[in-house]
């Protein structure tokens, strides 16, 4: 390789760059994969948990590989998504019983966890002064991570998660707007 063919060298360098990023992304989604496996072990519908978890891991890997705002959003999004996930796992066997029978608390856990995740993602976005790409990426990861557990509850669980998340995000936006007007 004595003579230097710059276009070939450029292609090789690019390939090397992408290869390293892919390797880093795969390493980066290991915690998501571990959580998915754990959740699948205790889930009522393991195939569904694995499917949603695989989607979360795939999206995380793509963001980590891509870089920029989506890459920075993976960790906050994943951390926020753990809130509804752990809440649902925690209340999985709890029931609220009344005169009309018993109701599972999972749907409420999804909604409350979603609210907390939405608040968390929005607060982090504002604190960092991040743009919509960060917020959208973090939200995507948070919702999918939360859905690993909430999907097992059914459509109601996912709807509760999304609504809670939306409420959390909106409340942060509203609070900021009011704060700005007041100052």
């Amino acid at each position: 390789m004595a003579s230097t063919d710059l276009p070939i060298l450029l292609r090789r360098a690019r390939w090397g760059y992408e290869k390293t990023r892919v390797r880093g992304a795969l390493l980066g989604v290991m915690p998501i994969a571990a959580i998915v496996l754990l959740a699948a072990c205790i889930a009522d519908h393991p195939p569904l948990t694995i499917t949603v978890g695989a989607a979360a891991a795939f999206l995380g890997a793509v963001f980590l590989w891509y870089g920029r705002a989506p890459q920075k959003a993976v960790l906050p999004g994943f951390t926020a998504g753990l809130v509804p996930l752990f809440l649902v796992v925690g209340v999985n066997h709890l029931h609220m019983c009344g005169p009309d029978g018993c109701t599972s608390l999972c749907m409420y856990a999804c909604a409350i966890g979603g609210l907390a995740a939405g608040l968390g993602v929005s607060v982090v976005s504002y604190r960092r002064g991040a743009g919509p790409a960060f917020w959208l990426s973090a939200s995507g990861i948070a919702l999918l991570t939360g859905a690993i557990a909430c999907a097992g509850v059914g459509y109601g669980g996912v709807a509760g998660l999304v609504l809670g998340f939306g409420a959390g995000a909106l409340s942060t936006v509203a609070q900021r707007r009011i704060g700005r007007r007041a100052s």
């Binding site: 360098a13 760059y17 390293t20 990023r21 880093g24």
Partner: peptide, 8 residues
């Protein structure tokens, strides 16, 4: 090549 592999 190594510089770009380590660029990230």
């Amino acid at each position: 090549q190594k510089v770009f592999e380590r660029a990230a």
